[in-house]
Design a protein around this nucleic acid. Structure first.
Length: 720
DNA sequence: GTAGGGTTAG
C-alpha cells in the first residue's frame, strides 16, 4: 500500500501544466526557459504544447515571440490561429488591428487546404479589432459579420456580444440593436455592451429601456459592469433622478464597494452638476484611485468651480495617489477657466516629469491653458512641439489666437492647416469667422463662407451664428440677416450676435425689434443680450427705454448687472447729456467698477464741456490709480481751460510718475485681402502722398457743404 | 482540462 509507484507525468503533460501556470502569473522569464526546453525536446511543432506557448507570450504582450512560436507549429489548428489573432486584438491599436485582419484572411485562404476553419473565437477577435482599423472599418466589419453567419457562428453569445460592441464603437447603435434583438441567448456582457453603447451616444432614454428590459427578463446578471455602464448612461442633468436610484441600488447590492462603481457614481453626479453629492460619494469611497480623484476634479472643473478643482488637486497630491493624464487634463482646464497661469505652469512641470508631454489630450489642454491665460507665444510652443497635431489641437491654437485678439495669426495658421490638407471641424470654422469679424475682413470672411459650403457644413450653431455675425459686423447686414434667417435652430448666442451686428452698425431700432422677436420666440436672454440692448439704446439716445431694460434685466430675468451693463448706462446717460444723473448712478454701483465708469463719464463731460463734473470724474480716476493716459490728458486739458495751472502741473507730474504717454490713434482698412494700417502721424504708407491729397480734397468738399469741425480748447490740446 | 466579448477619468 505504501510504496505504490506514482505514474511519472509524460513530458508533454508536464510542459502543458507549467505553461498554464506561467500564463496565469504572466512570468516572462520562466516563459523563455520553458520555450527553450520545449525546443530542445522537439515538441515546439505540436499544437497541444505550442498553442499554450503562443498564448503565454500573448499574455505577456510579446507579439514577436508569439508569432515565432506560432510559425513553428507544423500543423496549425484553429486554436493556434485564434491564440495569435486574439493576441493582436487584445493589445489593440491600428497596427495590431491590421495584423488581425491579415491573419484572418490568411486563415480563411488556407482553410480548405488545412481543413482548419474559423470559429467563434476567431470572429470575436476580429470584431474586437475592427473599430481600430484606420481604413474602412465598417466595410471590414460587415464582411466579417456575413462570414460569421456563413461559418455558423451566428448564435454564439461571445460573437454576438462582440458584434454589438463593434457596431456601437462604430457609432451604429441601430445595427448593434438589431444584432442584440436577434440574439438567441444573452448574458450580462451583452447587456453591458448594449447599454454602454447607448451611453456613449448620450442616448440615456434608450439605455434605461434596455436596463429595464434586463431587470424585467429577470436576468441574474446584475454585477459591477452593468451598474457602471448604466450609471454612465445617466451622466446628464436630465437623468439625475434615475442616477440616484441606481446609486441606491449600488448601496443595497453592496456593489458600491467596487471602486469602479463608486467612480461611476462620482462621475454621474459631477456631470449632472450635483457636486455636493459627488463630493459626499467620493469621501465615502474606500480605496480611492486616480480615476476617483480625476472624476471629482473634472466634475468641479466642468461645473465652473475651478478653484475647488485646484483645491482637490492639491489634496490629491498629499494623498500619494499619482495623477494620470486624465487628472492633469482636468486640472489644466480648471487653470484655463480662471486664468491661473502660475498653477498651470506648475502642472506643466509635473506632466513633463510624469512623461505625459506628448499626449494629444494633454497638449490640447496645455495650448488651451496658455492661450486662455494670455500667453499665446507659450501656447504656440506647445502647438509646435507635435509634428502631427490633430484637428482639435489646430482648433485650440487658432481659437487661442482669436481669444487674444491676434486675429491675423489665427488666419495665417488656418491657411497653413489648409495647405496641410487637414479637414476643419465646426469649431475651427467658427473661430476663423470670428477672426474675420474682428478684423472686419469681409473678403476673407466670404472665402471662408465658401469653404463652409464646400466642406458641407450646415448653418447649425455655432457656424451659422459666427457667419451671420461676421457679415453683420463687416457691415453686410442683409447677408448677415439672410444667414441668420436660414439657420435651422437659433440659441441665445445666435440672437446676440445678430443684435450686436445691427446695433454696431447704427441699426439700434432693428436690434431692439430683434430683441422683442427673441423674447416672443421664448429664448431666454442672457447678460450679453442686455449688453446689446443697452448699447443699442445708448446709440439711439433712448434714455427711458434704457432704464426700462436695465430694470427688466434684474427684476424679470434675475441677471445680476455686470460692469458692461453699468458702462452702457453711464454711456447712455452721458451721451444724452444727463451728466449729473450719470454721476449719481456711478456712485450707486459697486465701487470696483469705478475705473471703467468714471472714464466714460469723463469723455461725456468733454463732449458737453461740463468742466466741473469732468474734473470731479478725473480726480476720481486719479484716486483709483487709473493707467489710462487719455484720462490724464483730458483732465489736464480741463484744468487748462479752467485756468487752474497748479492742477495742470499736478496731473502732468502724476502722468510722468506713472510713465504714461499719449497713445497714438490708429485705424486700418482691408482692400483686396490686404490690410492697410495707419498710425496717427506716420508717413509709412507707400501711397502716403496720394492719400493725404485725397483727404484734403474731401475735407474741402465737406467744408464747402457747410461742415464746421469743432475745435474746442480740449481737442486743440489733445492734438498738440 | 489549450483560444473569445463588457465598466469608471479627457
Amino acid at each position: 500500500m505504501t510504496n505504490l509507484p506514482l505514474p511519472s507525468p509524460s513530458p508533454s503533460r508536464s510542459f502543458f501544466t507549467k505553461l498554464l501556470h506561467c500564463t496565469h502569473h504572466k512570468n516572462l522569464k520562466h516563459a523563455q526557459t520553458l520555450h527553450s526546453q520545449i525546443i530542445q525536446t522537439g515538441s515546439s511543432s505540436c499544437p497541444f504544447i505550442a498553442n499554450p506557448l503562443v498564448n503565454l507570450y500573448a499574455k505577456c504582450h510579446r507579439l514577436t515571440e508569439a508569432k515565432l512560436a506560432f510559425e513553428e507549429i507544423k500543423y496549425k489548428d484553429a486554436v493556434s490561429w485564434n491564440c495569435l489573432i486574439n493576441a493582436h486584438s487584445q493589445l489593440g491599436g491600428p497596427q495590431n488591428s491590421v495584423s488581425v485582419m491579415h491573419l484572418f484572411r490568411r486563415m480563411v485562404k488556407e482553410a480548405n487546404e488545412n481543413d482548419v476553419y474559423p470559429n467563434g473565437h476567431t470572429f470575436t477577435g476580429v470584431f474586437t479589432a475592427v473599430p481600430d482599423l484606420g481604413k474602412n472599418p465598417l466595410g471590414a466589419g460587415k464582411q466579417g459579420h456575413s462570414l460569421a453567419l456563413a461559418f455558423g457562428c451566428g448564435c454564439d453569445v461571445y460573437v454576438g456580444s462582440s458584434l454589438v460592441s463593434m457596431y456601437c464603437k462604430l457609432g451604429l447603435v441601430c445595427d448593434a440593436r438589431k444584432v442584440f434583438d436577434r440574439m438567441p441567448e444573452r448574458n450580462s456582457v451583452t447587456w453591458v455592451a448594449m447599454i454602454s453603447g447607448y451611453a456613449a451616444q448620450r442616448l440615456g432614454g434608450e439605455a434605461v429601456r434596455v436596463f429595464k428590459l434586463m431587470v424585467g427578463v429577470g436576468e441574474e446578471g446584475l454585477n459591477e459592469f452593468v451598474l457602471t455602464s448604466v450609471l454612465s448612461a445617466f451622466a446628464m442633468p436630465e437623468f439625475i433622478a434615475s442616477g440616484k436610484q441606481i446609486h441606491c441600488l449600488g448601496i443595497k447590492s453592496g456593489l458600491l464597494s467596487v471602486v469602479a462603481v463608486g467612480n461611476a457614481v462620482v462621475t454621474m453626479y459631477g456631470k449632472c452638476g450635483s457636486l455636493d453629492d459627488a463630493a459626499k460619494t467620493f469621501e465615502l469611497l474606500s480605496g480611492k484611485n486616480t480615476i476617483s480623484w480625476s472624476a471629482l476634479i473634472t466634475g468641479f472643473a466642468q461645473s465652473g468651480d475651478s478653484e475647488k478643482a485646484l483645491e482637490m488637486f492639491s489634496k490629491m497630491n498629499h494623498s500619494m495617489v499619482k495623477p494620470s493624464e486624465f487628472t492633469l487634463v482636468g486640472v489644466l482646464n480648471a487653470c484655463s477657466d480662471i486664468g491661473a497661469t502660475r498653477e498651470g505652469k506648475q502642472v506643466h512641470g509635473s506632466l513633463v516629469k510624469l512623461g505625459f508631454e506628448s499626449q494629444i489630450y494633454i497638449r490640447t489642454a496645455m495650448v488651451d491653458m496658455y492661450a486662455k491665460c494670455g500667453c499665446v507665444a507659450d501656447a504656440r510652443k506647445g502647438f509646435d512641439f507635435l509634428q502631427e497635431p490633430d484637428i482639435v489641437l489646430w482648433t485650440s491654437m487658432i481659437g487661442g489666437y482669436v481669444q487674444n485678439g491676434e486675429n491675423e495669426d489665427a488666419l495665417v495658421l488656418y491657411g497653413k492647416m489648409q495647405i496641410r490638407g487637414i479637414f476643419p471641424n465646426e469649431l475651427t470654422m467658427a473661430s476663423v469667422l470670428k477672426a474675420c469679424s474682428s478684423l472686419a475682413a469681409l473678403e476673407q470672411g466670404k472665402q471662408i463662407h465658401a469653404c463652409v459650403v464646400k466642406y458641407g457644413f450646415s448653418l447649425e450653431i455655432p457656424i451659422g451664428s459666427a457667419l451671420s455675425s461676421m457679415y453683420a459686423k463687416c457691415g453686410s447686414l442683409n447677408d448677415g440677416n439672410l444667414v441668420f434667417r436660414g439657420m435651422p435652430t437659433r440659441d441665445v448666442i445666435s440672437w446676440n450676435a445678430m443684435m450686436s451686428g445691427l446695433s454696431q452698425n447704427g441699426y439700434g431700432n432693428e436690434a431692439l425689434e430683434l430683441f422683442e422677436e427673441m423674447l416672443s420666440e421664448g429664448t431666454k436672454p442672457d447678460y450679453v443680450t442686455f449688453v446689446n440692448v443697452l448699447s443699442a439704446c445708448s446709440h439711439m439716445g433712448l434714455v427711458e427705454r434704457g432704464w426700462i431694460f436695465f430694470n427688466m434685466m434684474s427684476n424679470e430675468f434675475h441677471i445680476v448687472p455686470r460692469v458692461e451693463h453699468y458702462a452702457c448706462m453711464v454711456d447712455l446717460l452721458s451721451r444724452a447729456g444727463k451728466l449729473t444723473e450719470a454721476k449719481e448712478f456711478i456712485e450707486s454701483t459697486p465701487t470696483e467698477h469705478g475705473l471703467c465708469l468714471w472714464q466714460i463719464l469723463l469723455s461725456g463731460c468733454r463732449n458737453y464741456r461740463n468742466y466741473d463734473l469732468g474734473a470731479y470724474a478725473g480726480e476720481k480716476l486719479m484716486e483709483l490709480g487709473s493707467k489710462e493716459s487719455s484720462a490724464y490728458v483730458l483732465l489736464s486739458s480741463i484744468y487748462t481751460v479752467m485756468g487752474r495751472r497748479g492742477d495742470v502741473e499736478r496731473v502732468r507730474r502724476m502722468m510722468n510718475l506713472l510713465g504714461l504717454n499719449k497713445e497714438p490713434g490708429c485705424s486700418w482698412i482691408e482692400m483686396k485681402s490686404q490690410i492697410h494700417a495707419f498710425v496717427a502721424g506716420d508717413q509709412m504708407h507707400p501711397q502716403d502722398k496720394q492719400i493725404r491729397a485725397e483727404v484734403q480734397r474731401l475735407s474741402k468738399l465737406i467744408t464747402d457743404e457747410g461742415y464746421k469741425p469743432v475745435f474746442d480748447l480740449l481737442s486743440a490740446d489733445l492734438e498738440s
